[in-house]
């Protein structure tokens, strides 16, 4: 692999190690080393862009260990990884798309909302719906102008209410965690709706899985000790 002279020697060296990895073990080790660099890369630098492209390719390889590490790296790159992730969703590779949803769920950039909504409601994989449900409570909306923030919060809650009724317990569990996080910055009317969802999931009549009920109870306790919207800027 020819070094790209616009990149730093360290990044070139790490990209080469990934490209030349001959076994799944060495690919995993090289990916982890590359991911460890991510927090140190200047935002929107050539180095960061090159690393993000490499991590995106790793999502599509059939190496779950490397994909898990690559998701961590993309999360560490934050907002700079969002456009490449959104673009990658066109790929006809279910596995890669699932990893991209996970990364977007953790980054919390509002541009990921349409993807999270669709994944939470329609994806066939429970682990993808699970990640999306958690991500719907995790969007960073504080920097937005008030009316836009309210519009997005309304959409998040609507999608979360859907995931609270998912057929898989693990998705409902993630929805409870998402709703709990959503409540931290929710305006009063939306907070009341969110609390109703949690209250329903706390009752054996509506929720058959004990661990989901316990988690809903814990979320309601948190909401009671920290009134909704207290983290709102």
């Amino acid at each position: 692999m020819t070094p790209d002279l616009s990149l730093s020697p360290t990044v070139n060296e790490h990209l080469r190690a990934v490209a030349e990895a001959a076994s799944s073990e060495s690919l995993l080790a090289a990916t982890r080393a590359l991911v460890a660099l991510c927090p140190t890369l200047p935002a929107h630098s050539d180095d960061q862009q090159a690393v993000i492209s490499c991590l995106m390719e790793l999502l599509a390889t059939n190496n779950p260990g490397a994909a898990v590490a690559a998701v961590d790296g993309l999360i560490a790159c934050g907002g700079a990884a969002v456009e490449p992730l959104l673009h990658n969703l066109d790929a006809h590779n279910y596995g890669a798309r699932a990893w991209a949803v996970r990364a977007l769920a953790s980054i919390g950039d509002p541009r990921g909302l349409p993807v999270l909504e669709k994944a939470a409601g329609e994806d066939i994989g429970p682990s993808v719906r699970r990640a999306a449900a958690r991500g719907l409570g995790n969007l960073t909306l504080a920097d937005l102008e008030v009316s836009q923030r309210l519009r997005l919060q309304e959409r998040c809650l609507k999608a979360l209410e859907g995931t609270c009724r998912d057929g898989e317990w693990v998705v409902r569990y993630a929805a409870v965690v998402g709703v709990e996080q959503f409540l931290a910055e929710a305006p009063a009317d939306l907070a009341q709706r969110a609390i109703s969802s949690l209250e329903r999931l706390q009752t054996p009549a509506a929720e058959e899985v004990p661990v989901v009920r316990l988690r809903a109870r814990q979320a309601l306790e948190a909401a009671a000790t920290r009134p909704p919207g207290t983290n709102r800027p």
């Binding site: 449900a133 965690v177 661990v211 988690r215 814990q218």
Partner: peptide, 9 residues
């Protein structure tokens, strides 16, 4: 245990 589960979502 719930805290451990939350971190795996």
């Amino acid at each position: 245990l719930l805290t451990l589960m939350d971190a795996l979502l």
